[in-house]
Amino acid sequence: MDIEKKLKEIREEALKQIQTSEKLEKLNDVRVGFLGKKGELTALLKSMKDVAPEERPAFGQKVNETRQAIEKVLEETKSKLENAAREAKLRAEVIDVTLPARKVNLGHRHPNTVALEEVERIFTGMGYEVVEGPEIEYDYYNFEALNIPANHPAKDEQDTFYITPDILLRTQTSGVQVHEMERGKLPIRMIAPGRVFRSDEVDATHSPCFHQIEGMVIDKNITFADLKGTLAEFAKQLFGADTKVKFRPHHFPFTEPSAEMDVTCFKCKGEGCRFCKGEGWIEILGCGMIHPRVLKMSGIDPDEYSGFAFGVGLERIALLKYEIDDMRLLYENDIRFLKQF
């Protein structure tokens, strides 16, 4: 039989079978049927031994050409079928992306902690160390060393819980100032968050147990302007870059001059609204230059060193910042409340 004709027949038959292959398995069968060890083309090649030696190269070349032609089509078709199969698979795997998320149910920090960590972040960024002091404290640290001697009316104002005449539940974190000064390491830049206690009945705005953050800087050449600059920066970072501050003269026994700092209401930006009771300003903290007598009592020479101190009510910050309208929520620990922070 004419080899050419035979090859043409094989090629046509192969192409026909390839074209009608709708699945990869079928395609593979076609490959095996023509190109496999026992395939038709392979058989033809094996018959080369019957061909005259001088014709063998031409014969071989012809068979190979046919083989290549079939392989090419096989490859093309295979890749087409593969693509189709992948696409069909993808189509079948469409999911509803709006189904609910699968979560690990992370817990939440207490709003006091969220606020505290924000304050800590601001001050550690400015080089302040975060330290602590005891919650049950000697009268000396809570009052006397802060220029509040025995029988000072400020002691009454603070409604102190006493354990013994000398030991009390601290009414302010200011005592940590004294502990830090006594360590004798200067300069000092510190904040001291902590729990404080005052004899107030529980209501929407009072709690007998709450938190303050004390701050103190002592160095050479610390000025009232530094106090203003530091706290203005703090307010901006905590309440937003457009926050303005106002310092009003005030009185604390352990600072002189003393001030209270107001910030522009973060709801109305100072226009006056219900939130700030129409004033446009909200009182945030008390501060002042450390009284020279306080420095001296703790062994620091007020002629060489000066410093400033401030105290912030943590709950006050949390209530304002998160617009919580009842302080009792902070100590009830209802999970529906905590989950929001």
Binding site: V130, D219, G229
Partner: peptide, 25 residues
Amino acid sequence: VARFYGYDNIPTTLPSGEATTGQLS
């Protein structure tokens, strides 16, 4: 002096001096 000069008129600066490390205990 400060209160009649006006707390508002006192400039705002940041403390200069020796750098300190800010950190949690």
